[in-house]
């Protein structure tokens, strides 16, 4: 059996749960196992309907007041109890602030393997080999869990995208019809309270909404100094786009927190995304990789940003970016409908 621990908020499944179902179904079908989705919630009933659409063979609900708000100790106890009862071959959670927060505890408690941030898997004979990014995604490492018994995996967000509903062969499978529905009873009320959520707020005031921008030019660590960020502003202005930033820029105080694009900032998918001096940490890629056209400018040819880019320039951004700005300005200077006496188009 393959066990998925669904993530949810406000009585809705989070997108990562659908991605886990993709990985879970692939593994289950390939290994000839069944797929179970576990819902841990105060009132799991409200999520059952959505979980059916994930196409599991079985849905198991774990109910308890202590399961919300999320507390790693409580989720660890619940999942450990489920695992020892059901003995799944693989237990999948998201590589998210929930998944990487509790699943390592379950793995360490049971002394079983954990594969963090999994992006891919393959069958090697009887064994499953998982791929995880290492060295800031400059390398990939394939690992084989040792021994028999449950293996824990956190799936990198975006690595197992659900199929679009209108694609052939998609939709709630399969042959089995309705999934079985089980309630799993575990007493969580006696666990000591060691951590308690006392507040929750948005980090940035949210003045800047990049979600609706058509064109975004984003600067990263390669900019090196706050004073150089004008290069990004200039190119964005020339293109008529918005300005964004990667985490190091915001951490260094060169731009406010609401400019940040990535898993802990804004998620964007503009028509054109220009990444300047951004190496492409996994957390950044999650926030922009669905952009229609991605341009990467970086002096490091091995930078992972080139893996998601459509066009790449490996060079010093301080030489290239002003040239792009100049070319775009020249182009735009020529294009307005009112005929201008401007010079001809820049040669190429």
């Amino acid at each position: 059996m393959i066990l998925i621990v669904a993530e949810h908020a406000d009585d809705r499944l989070k997108p990562i749960s659908r991605e886990l179902a993709v990985l879970g179904r692939e593994l289950a079908d390939d290994l000839g196992r069944t797929l179970t989705v576990a819902i841990l919630a105060r009132d799991p009933a409200s999520l059952v309907e959505e979980c059916r659409a994930l196409g599991p063979d079985r849905i198991v609900t774990v109910a308890g007041d202590r399961l919300e708000p999320y507390d790693p100790d409580v989720w660890t106890a619940a999942v450990e109890a489920l695992v020892s009862e059901d003995e799944p071959a693989f237990v999948l959670a998201g590589h998210t602030s929930t998944g990487y927060d509790f699943l390592p505890r379950v793995a360490a408690r049971t002394g079983r393997p954990l594969v963090p941030a999994c992006i891919e898997w393959q069958r090697h004979g009887e064994r499953v080999v998982f791929t995880r990014p290492v060295f800031n995604a400059k390398m990939h490492m394939r690992v084989t869990p040792k021994g028999e018994g449950p293996c824990f995996v956190t799936a990198a967000p975006g690595a197992f995208p659900p199929r679009e509903p209108d694609e052939a062969g998609s939709g709630p499978p399969q042959d089995g019809g309705e999934p079985r529905l089980d309630a799993f009873d575990v007493d969580l009320s006696g666990l000591p309270v060691r951590s308690k959520r006392i507040g929750r707020e948005s980090a940035a005031a949210g003045a800047l909404d990049l979600g609706s921008a058509d064109i975004i030019v984003a600067g990263g660590r390669g900019i090196r100094e706050k004073e150089h960020f004008g290069l990004i502003d200039d190119l964005a202005e020339a293109l008529g786009g918005a300005v964004g930033a990667s985490r190091p820029v915001v951490d260094s105080g060169w731009r406010p927190r609401d400019y940040q694009i990535g898993s802990s900032g804004q998620t964007v998918s503009p028509r054109l995304y220009v990444a300047v001096g951004i190496s492409g940490a996994v957390q950044h890629l999650v926030g922009m990789q669905s952009s229609r056209c991605i341009v990467a400018i970086n002096k490091d040819a091995d930078a992972p940003i080139f893996k998601v880019a459509h066009y790449g320039i490996v060079d010093d951004l301080f030489s290239v970016v002003p040239e792009i700005t100049r070319t775009v300005r020249a182009l735009k200077g020529q294009s307005p409908p009112v005929g201008s006496a401007g010079s001809g188009r820049e040669s190429d």
């Binding site: 793995a107 995604a137 490492m141 394939r142 040792k146 021994g147 992972p304 893996k307 998601v308």
Partner: peptide, 13 residues
């Protein structure tokens, strides 16, 4: 608990 099977340079898309 996991054996390293292979480290490789990611294929470029």
């Amino acid at each position: 608990l996991c054996q390293v099977t292979e480290v490789r340079v990611p294929e470029r898309d």
